[in-house]
Nucleic acid binder design. Structure first.
Length: 419
RNA sequence: CGGGCCGUAGCUCAGUUAGGUUAGAGCGCCGGGUUGUGGUCCCGGAGGUCGGGGGUUCAAAUCCCCUCGGUCCGCCCA
């Protein structure tokens, strides 16, 4: 026997019926974004590694989790670890009219140890609005993300919101924080000390006990915003209030990616007890387009992890599996040809239909018909074939049967299904 | 990168503590229950190198060593 291959570590096959939940999730997302005039963008799953390195040298994602490789042309490429960078790169490349409002569905790759809600390949839906600094776009994007979760039936979600201020504010605050933390190095957890000088904001994100205790008293970014940034933040809060999107301000919220300015936020699933309870997050990234070599262009967007959303949905018993079924099941005990033709005739007239294969017995075919969930069975035996008829059996109401002329089948079935 | 738990049929698991007849169950799958008909019920069947390798022993799913997976926690993140 040849070696039995398995899906690589940290990856999963999504099969029916679970894949049906994916389809519905994506359909809900496409609906929410489509109604808000966001269009689908498809971009390559790999890019020049530089595109992702601009996400920030302070991020774990870039520092040690990148799936990078050299291709046959000696180009250094990487599989995308997140969705925003490629979209911004595409924006720079194509210069669409602004604001450019797009959504995406993509796998993301990160080389890390798998655990509950964490994979080497996971999937995100997300949206970006690029080319406008209007705080109403921050609001629009946050509210759309919120509405997406609600449309899925999720209710136990919390939204934490923060502002990183303008790029200047962020820089000034980082320096202020580095100085403050530098005076308390000895009190920090050893593992966090290395970040103080170069990536002080990362220290705010630490979950280590000693560090958390120290950071509780650290200066808050929201106390050091410029007037302009403070006004932006106030407008965002007012807008969310007006749209009924609940949130709490968390001035220590620092997300994993370094490019955020102004609004930054994260949705967590209260129903998830695992450590990986973030189901999505986003922020404004006014400096990213420029750092990717484009003209300066502000932008704002979010990503949401499909696997995590489905875990949260499981916990809330939302977005449940629905048994996929067809309307009609065709049983043919005359060899299969008549049933094949009838099945396609139904399908070509917009009626979902399936059939059995391998010339099995009528009993066996009826079992399959039952499992298929079909409302109606159409039976073709030697008698029907000779008489030019098809027997219609109602599988739900006790099994009443009627004979139909072969030529009337589609019409009759359609009429029955319409009831 | 550090740590815990777990690998026996397609799935969920017994059996491992005190090694011993052809390794079991439920579900699922296939066939049958007399002359074309599902869901309940009954009968039968297929399907497992007990994760892999080595060792101890008359004898290993069971004991020992190594190894590979899976899973979960920390850290980090969706």
């Amino acid at each position: 026997m040849a070696e039995l291959f398995q899906a690589p570590k940290g990856t999963r096959d999504v099969l029916p019926p679970e894949s049906d939940r994916w389809q519905r999730l994506v359909a809900v997302f496409a609906g929410v974004m489509g109604r808000a005039a966001y269009g689908l963008v498809q971009s390559p799953m790999f890019e020049d590694i530089g595109v992702f390195q601009r996400l920030g040298e302070g991020t774990e994602v870039v520092r040690k989790e990148m799936y990078d490789f050299y291709d046959k042309g000696d180009r250094r490429l990487a599989l995308r670890p997140e969705g925003t960078a490629s979209v911004v790169r595409a924006f720079n490349q194509h210069r669409p009219t602004v604001p450019w409002k797009v959504w995406y569905l993509t796998p993301c790759f990160r080389y890390e140890e798998p655990q509950a809600g964490r994979f080497r390949q996971h999937h995100q839906v997300g949206a970006e609005a690029i080319g406008s600094a209007d705080p109403d776009l921050d609001i629009e994007v946050i509210a759309l993300q919120h509405d997406f979760y609600r449309a899925l039936g999720l209710s136990h979600l919390s939204l934490r919101l923060n502002s990183m201020g303008s790029p200047g504010d962020r820089q000034a605050y980082a320096e202020r924080l580095a100085t403050w933390l530098g005076q308390r190095l000895g009190d920090l957890d050893e593992a966090d000390r290395a970040n103080v000088a170069d990536h002080p904001l990362r220290v705010l994100d630490s979950k280590r006990e000693r560090t958390v205790a120290v950071v509780a008293d650290a200066p808050r970014i929201t106390d050091h915003l410029s007037d302009e940034a403070a006004a932006h933040f106030a407008r965002v809060q007012a807008g969310l209030d007006a749209l009924g999107v609940a949130y709490e301000i968390d001035s220590r919220l620092v997300r994993g990616l370094d490019y955020y300015t102004h609004s930054t936020w994260e949705f967590a699933a209260g129903a998830l007890t695992s450590a990986q309870n973030a189901v999505g997050g986003g922020g404004r990234y006014d400096g990213l387009a420029e750092s990717l070599g484009g003209k300066p262009a502000p932008g704002v967007g979010f990503g949401a992890g499909i696997e995590r959303i489905l875990l949260a949905a499981d916990a809330e018993e939302a977005l449940l599996d629905t048994a996929a079924s067809v309307d009609v099941f065709v049983v043919d005990v005359t060899g299969g040809g008549a049933g094949r033709n009838l099945t396609f005739e139904l399908r070509r007239n917009g009626i979902s239909a399936d059939r059995a294969f391998d010339a099995r017995s009528m009993k066996a075919q009826m079992k399959v018909a039952d499992r298929s969930g079909a409302r109606l069975a159409l039976l073709v035996g030697e008698e029907e074939l000779a008489a030019g008829t098809v027997t219609l059996r109602d599988l739900r109401s006790g099994g009443s049967q009627t004979a139909l002329a072969r030529g009337d089948v589609v019409h009759e079935v359609a009429a029955r299904l319409a009831r």
